[in-house]
Amino acid sequence: MKLEHKATIAAPIGQVWAFLMDVPAVAKCAPGVESVEPLGDDKYRGTIKVSVGPIRLAFQGDVSIVERDEVAHTASMRADAADKRAGGAVKAVLTMSLSEVSTDPPVTELRMETDAQIMGRVGEFGQPIIRKKADQMVGEFGQNLSKAIAAGIAK
């Protein structure tokens, strides 16, 4: 399943990039993230809660930065997580790339391409709903990111 999102952030590209490299801060922008612990080597462990109506899933897993190109301003993160209770797993690669829209005022565009696979019993249940939910969540994540970066700058 492939998802694409864009967010526009009123901040210079360098600042946005710096923020993106702070994984715990970035992770907090994802809806439902409960905890993020660094494991070293650009690897982190965390929990994210997802609910669709009465269905409540808690995915636990690892996120790592698998690629980062400071010059091109692209980075990709990989997440592997599983929900033990219902028996489901998610494997996702999130590629983020920044481009400068303007320097005065500073505006940066963030593009996020997500390639995710939902597996196991959770995957048996309504892939279309999962896709919609994932789409919603990544969209919200993008919005939260812009807000968080804007807030950081305002400080």
Partner: peptide
Amino acid sequence: EQDGLITTLS
């Protein structure tokens, strides 16, 4: 089939 997984499961 999506990424090698069958998604029509009932």
